[in-house]
Design a protein around this nucleic acid. Sequence first.
DNA 1: GGTCATTTTAAACGTTTGTTTGAAGAACCA
DNA 2: TGGTTCTTCAAACAAACGTTTAAAATGACC
Lengths: 224, 224
Amino acid sequence: MTAPNQGVQPDTSERSVQDRLVEAAEELFCRRGYNETSVRDIAAIAGCNVASVNYYFGGKDNLYVEVWRRRLAFMRTHRLASIEKVMSAPNPPQLENLLHSYAVSFIEPLVEGGPHCRFINLMAREMIDPHLPRDMYVEEMVTPVLEAFREALLKICPWLDAGTVPMVVFSIVGQLLMHTVCVKEMFEGSTHPELSRIDLDSIVNHVVKFSAAGVRGCTEVQRG
Amino acid sequence: MTAPNQGVQPDTSERSVQDRLVEAAEELFCRRGYNETSVRDIAAIAGCNVASVNYYFGGKDNLYVEVWRRRLAFMRTHRLASIEKVMSAPNPPQLENLLHSYAVSFIEPLVEGGPHCRFINLMAREMIDPHLPRDMYVEEMVTPVLEAFREALLKICPWLDAGTVPMVVFSIVGQLLMHTVCVKEMFEGSTHPELSRIDLDSIVNHVVKFSAAGVRGCTEVQRG
DNA sequence: GGTCATTTTAAACGTTTGTTTGAAGAACCA
DNA sequence: TGGTTCTTCAAACAAACGTTTAAAATGACC
């Protein structure tokens, strides 16, 4: 009857074709990555013709950029607001407050945010082999958040060397990606169920505790 | 004159065709990943015919497995030996010794180990979307090293909960991957040279210091 | 030199890919 | 109703992919 989308019935709701295409594209890009996702599969899930991708977006690569364009602005403001909220709280913020808030704002919208897919998978893929225009992710996401985080962290930990702040952030993000993407991927459906069933809260709590101690340890060498 | 390998002249040395194929495959898989590497390019760099891949290995996927097979055994014994060496040192090992030794044994053979490529890129790719037989990486690499690391770490930090050891290891590996793969990839050729030019020693030192404090912080909550 | 198995080769195979095409359909306004 | 624009569609396109094929080249042994 319908197109060959392997059990996934096409989306024929009242939303516009553009929206349906972007959403279907996001789902498949997250699951399979850029190259293993075909515009035919995207169109099938979106419930429209293959040519629509080129009609509305001018190509697969532009559709990929559009998926990111819609996410980047939201993610950036979400993270910046999260930092802002912690720093403007009535009682003086602790290091753990900042780290926990950032970790949650980083993870939460990416893991369960979308309708059915995990955008964090796509983020990890994009970091390893990029398909976005050069510097788009860095300019629109990394740099602004890094700047806000540096200012906040230095306010809480004034003794910290400003140059180490990026490394601290990368250490935290690296842990979050590892725990939520790689470990999940490695042990999913494997014979080690004890490692695949760790919930988000446990991950966030571990990373926050681990990283708070790590930050404090960054400058506690001279006392050793 | 030669095949269209875009400036890279084919390898026509005295080594066997199998070896040349595996080496060329490793180089391209590391640089572009599984799907964006064609057997035609591999054969061109190896200086042999396209059909040789199927003649000797029976397909692209088997060649991919062979690339990993040759690496996995070496990497595993390298890491296990590194842990063993620290734990059998004359003076009682410190936490920093174990972490530094592991980080170096993890990073060093992957970043500059091969003839010209960085295997750590391929490792990161494989973690995010796997193309190996299920459980091959986990069974041959993760589980054995994790077990040895757990034993070593618990000997140095007996107060540590055994269940948190995997999370500690993933936190360390996540940081190493982030700093050496993602950050390098993001800022390579970008307009932020201050973030792309961090040498391996600085990365290892940061991760070791950060993680040692993190490990100690894992059980220092009750002293609040 | 002849015979055999092994290796290498160019060519072709059948799929799948992203994209283009030109006509048919739908929607809107006069 | 007629005309115009926007949208959808099946079909075809050229290119690239992994793989297969059958013949040619190679080397070892008698």
